[in-house]
């Protein structure tokens, strides 16, 4: 009984510490944001910060995975508006240095999300984490195009905003 309690307490502590460790980690750096002084601003996001901006979940298949996956993340449109961006281009770059440019005008609502959970779990780099820009490919043919596929950047960790 005491062992069980101890184990539970220990596991809980371990989990909490893990959470807090992860939570304190920066998973997305957005640079090039216009600042009041005219200089550029860089903002770093932790997971919880992203989750606070917005969170939706959808299921879809992708060309790069097997079977239907459930993705949870912040809609790109919501994310862009939280940064108070009206125009310009987002240059998203992955850990593996893959990079794409997405015009802000195409940050569609009901469209792409910056997913931070796949099948309700965080994604390691091996699992194309920490962030994955995914589209609901199955919901509409307009998301099954070459451009959309090329913009579906995984292992995303930084975004540069430019005019």
């Amino acid at each position: 009984m005491g062992f069980v309690t101890q184990c539970a307490v220990a596991f809980t502590l371990l989990f909490l510490s893990a959470i807090s460790t992860v939570a304190s980690e920066t998973i997305l750096t957005v640079s090039g944001l216009p600042a009041a002084s005219g200089s550029e601003l860089t903002v770093e996001f932790e997971l919880e910060e992203l989750r606070r901006i917005g969170e939706i979940t959808f299921s879809t298949t992708t060309p790069w995975t097997e079977g239907e996956q459930t993705f949870t993340g912040v809609p790109l449109a919501t994310f862009v508006s939280s940064l108070d961006l009206k125009a310009g281009v987002l240059k998203a770059t992955a850990v593996n240095d893959y990079a794409v440019e997405i015009p802000i005008s195409e940050a569609l609502f009901d469209g792409p999300i910056i997913a931070y959970l796949k099948n309700d779990k965080r994604m390691s780099v091996r699992e194309k984490g920490p962030l994955w820009l995914v589209y609901p490919y199955d919901s509409d043919a307009k998301f099954r195009t070459e451009i959309v596929y090329s913009r579906s950047i995984w292992q995303l960790d930084r975004i540069v905003v430019s005019e």
Binding site: T61, T62, P63, W64, T65, E66, V95, N96, S124, V125, R126, E127, K128, W154, Q155
Partner: peptide, 19 residues
């Protein structure tokens, strides 16, 4: 380790990806 993970994710993609 990062390089290994990236390579790992690449192989997973070609080993399991629908395409």
């Amino acid at each position: 380790r990062n390089r290994f993970d990236i390579f790992y994710s690449r192989v997973v993609t070609i080993a399991y990806g629908q395409q």
